[in-house]
Design a protein around this nucleic acid. Structure first.
Lengths: 215, 215
DNA sequence: GCCGATCTGGTACCGGGGTACCTGGCCGGT
DNA sequence: ACCGGCCAGGTACCCCGGTACCAGATCGGC
């Protein structure tokens, strides 16, 4: 049985979703919320909610923030952001916030049901209208950009230093952060540059970012 | 009428897809190919193909390379990569190659038909099984980090310089690239650092990357 | 015409970045 | 016991990066 929570500030929307989902034998609507705050409370009080349908525009706490806070809760439900076409620009934000699904309200009841089952199974779902935007994003960030830094055989300490270079720290700050002397940092930096083939710390910083060393 | 090309090295698969699609009144199978090379030829000889279903594993020219070369052709069809579950790791590569869809062969005939209509309409589609991986990728590249550099009021030249800083060039190379003297570059760099509030060029480089100035 | 912003260029100066080379301690493997 | 790695540290040196300040050219707007 898939247990679902519905968060939308409009009573009618909640009722509609609820009717649609309850029509399925394997789906149960365990909670309803009129804003993000109510959703968080519901999830905190009921640890067995599998999926949360969340609207973006809600009073008190909007859907995206609620999604982010939800992620901090243990046994957090998978979030499907269900919103109007006007809000389709929020896809990337929703994904970044941790959503496992993004549906437009113009979709069919069948799509909604399928989406709930999909994310409950650990997969993810996007409305076709917004998938294009996501693909463009992936193309833009480019898969070629990701660097495998294991290839450089950096030692643990050198990796630390590289990460801090990528964060924009100068040698003094790195020494400070790692409780080292300036000299030691310099030697590490020199080694990092040599191993990674970077001419200067700027190149190294770029490499660090491409390698995902900086969040 | 949606005109489709099918590229798969297995005759039986092509026949199956063809039968499924031809069952729809608005879809026509205009070409079939047993490898990527044949697909390219078919598309070059028939400029009215809207959608191409492409398998990854094909002799002569594989599906991903074919997709990349397809992008160079004018009025190129939208590509849906249709492949086995074993190849689901190629999603990101497929997207980077320009695919507008990624389907697993285990999907239903209805899914296939819907996918063709979806990409023909300019949208995109992903199998639920691989959507999760794509979302993880988007989350990893971090959209929250995106910086709006319009806020810094940089002039055109300063923006040029910032972009090159982000690419890891030193002042000499920037001067070379922009046909400027070293002094001029230094002036611009100083202005960029002041306007962006960056302490040194490393910080500026990080900013440039976060702002999307470097591809 | 005048003013301001932008682009371009120069000189001079200093500090941090980066290199080269050496010392020493700590561990793990042979 | 010895060797090789990683880590930590020091000294000395050079050069690029960055700042400060100035100045001429162009261009658009009041």
């Amino acid at each position: 049985m898939i247990r679902v929570a519905i968060a939308d500030d409009q009573q009618l929307v909640r009722d509609g979703f609820s009717l649609i989902l309850r029509s399925q034998a394997d789906i149960d609507v365990a909670a309803e919320a009129a804003d993000g705050q109510q959703l968080l409370e519901a999830v905190r009080h009921d640890s067995r909610i599998d999926v949360a349908l969340v609207d973006i525009r809600m009073p008190v706490l909007d859907g995206l923030q609620a999604t982010r806070e939800l992620a901090a809760i243990p046994h957090a439900p998978a979030v499907i952001v269900v919103t109007t076409f006007d809000d389709d620009a929020y896809v990337l934000d929703a994904i970044a916030s941790g959503a496992r699904g993004f549906l437009l309200k113009r979709c069919s009841a069948r799509d909604l049901i399928a989406a709930v089952r999909t994310v409950a199974a650990g997969e993810a779902i996007l409305s076709a209208e917004v998938t294009g935007a996501v693909l463009d994003r992936v193309r833009a960030t480019g898969p070629a950009t990701h660097v495998e830094l294991a290839a450089y055989q950096l030692t643990a300490r050198e990796t630390d230093v590289l990460a801090l270079i990528g964060a924009g720290l100068n040698n003094n700050e790195i020494a400070d952060r790692l409780y080292l002397s300036m000299s030691t940092v310099k030697t590490h930096v020199t080694n990092v540059l040599a191993k990674t083939g970077s001419r200067d710390r700027v190149r190294a910083a770029i490499l660090a970012i491409r390698a995902g060393l900086t969040p």
